[in-house]
Amino acid sequence: MMTSLAHWAMAAGFVLILIGFYGALTNRNLLRMIVAFCIADTGVNIVLVAVGHMRGRTAPILDSAVPVADAVSRIIDPVPQALVLTAIVIGLGVTAMMLAYALKLYEKKRTLDIAKFTELKW
């Protein structure tokens, strides 16, 4: 197997996803679960960007370093980057909402332990 930069980054991204899942599954503190979720989120983004990377090419921004004429042979795939850009911004929105709900739950119950919230259990 030919290893490359993209492989390393992708492996690191996968490891981050696993670490994040592990943290979200084993922790019982709400804020810790949100932290773990953020780490998994970062891992997904890294994997997506690594998929778009190509050996020996450069960023999809045309300037004096990359003239328009040989853009096709010099730049990497811009589509995953645009996707990840959206994903990061929405990630912040989701995190903010989770944090707001965690804060609200804490105000109601004075605890962040997920095991203490028994109303929805059956």
């Binding site: 990377h53 190509m54 999809p60 853009a71 096709v72 795939d77």
Partner: peptide, 13 residues
């Protein structure tokens, strides 16, 4: 890893 841009990316480029 791809060696060439795929169709969409090529269009954009």
């Amino acid at each position: 890893p791809d060696e060439q841009l795929n169709l969409t990316a090529r269009y954009y480029a």
